[in-house]
Design a protein around this nucleic acid. Structure first.
Lengths: 151, 151
DNA sequence: CACGAATCGTTTGTCCGCTAATCATTAGCG
DNA sequence: CGCTAATGATTAGCGGACAAACGATTCGTG
C-alpha cells in the first residue's frame, strides 16, 4: 500500500538517482554530467554549429550557450565564427578538452557497465522499452501541438 | 552509427520526454507536475510536517517550501504551526485543493496507462529493472559518501 | 538591388532542483 | 535551571533546463 506504483514515478526516481550518482563521480574531476555531454558530442562531431550541437544534445540553444561559456572559460574548447556564414559559430575542442573528455567518458562507461550489470539479462528489453516510452511521449506531445495550432 | 547506446542516455531521454508530456497536459489546468506531486502526497497523508512531506516526495525541504508558497497562495492548501512543537508546520489540503488534485490525478493515471500500453507486456520487467537501477545508484552514492567521511 | 522574412547566437526571465547559512524552537545534559 | 546541541522551516544563491525577445546576418522574392 501507498507504494505509488506509477510508472512515471519509478522512471523519475531511477533517473534522478543515476544522474546524481554520475554527477557525483564527475564532480571529483571538477566537471558535471551536463558539461561532459557537451564536450563529448563536440569531440564526436567536430566543427558543429551551436544549433546543431544543441539538437544532438537534445537541449535548447540558450542552455548550450551557458555550458559553452564555462567550457570556453576553462580552456576546453574554442568558438570561432564561420567565415562563409558569419551568423554561425563553430565549436572545436582543444587538446586539454580532449584529455578531460576522455577521463569523464571512462567514468560514464564504467557507470554504464555497472548499471547494465545491475539490470541483468533484461537490459536489452529495458532499453527498448525506454525507447518506446520516449517515442510515445514525443509523438503525444507533437500531436497535442498540432491540435493547438489547428484550433 | 552515432546512436550512443548508453543506458543512462536512453533513460534520461525517456524521462525527459515523459516529464515534458505530463507537464504539458497539466499546464492546461494551470498546474505543473511538481506542484501536483506535492498536492497528491499531501492529500494521501494529511497533516504531515514539511520535512516528512519532503522526504515522501524525495526532494529537499527548501524546494518544497517554494511549492507550498505557491499552492498556499492559490488557496489549495493551508499551513498551520503545530501547537505541541511550534517548530513544525502541518500541511492540510483545502476542498478546492482536493478538487484540483483529483483532476490532475486523472491526467497522471491516463498518462500512466498510455505509457504502460506503449511498453507492452514487459512493463513489470521494466519497472523492476528501474527499481534495481535506483537501488544500485543510491547504494553506490551512499558508499561513496562513506569513503569520503572515512578518509 | 532592396527590403521583408528567416536563421543564428545571445540575453533576459522563469521554473525546479540543490547546498549552505539563518532563525525559532525544543531537547538534553551539566 | 541554564546553556549548548539538535531540529524544523526559511532565505540566499547556484546549476541546469526552458521560452520569449533581441541584434546581427543572410536569404529570397519582388
Amino acid at each position: 500500500m501507498e507504494h505509488d506504483d506509477r510508472f512515471g514515478r519509478t522512471l523519475a526516481l531511477a533517473h534522478k538517482a543515476m544522474h546524481e550518482c554520475i554527477d557525483e563521480r564527475m564532480a571529483e574531476h571538477g566537471a558535471s554530467l551536463a558539461t561532459w555531454l557537451v564536450l563529448h558530442h563536440a569531440v564526436e562531431e567536430p566543427d558543429l554549429s551551436q544549433s546543431h550541437l544543441a539538437s544532438r544534445l537534445v537541449i535548447e540553444a540558450p542552455t548550450l550557450v551557458r555550458h559553452l561559456d564555462k567550457l570556453e572559460a576553462d580552456g576546453l574548447l574554442q568558438r570561432t565564427r564561420d567565415a562563409r556564414d558569419r551568423r554561425v559559430v563553430r565549436v572545436r575542442v582543444t587538446d586539454a578538452g580532449r584529455e578531460v573528455e576522455a577521463r569523464l567518458r571512462a567514468i560514464a562507461d564504467e557507470m554504464n557497465a555497472e548499471v547494465r550489470a545491475a539490470v541483468g539479462e533484461d537490459h536489452e528489453i529495458v532499453q527498448r522499452a525506454l525507447e518506446r516510452i520516449r517515442e510515445f511521449a514525443v509523438a503525444s506531445l507533437a500531436e497535442r501541438k498540432n491540435h493547438v495550432t489547428a484550433s
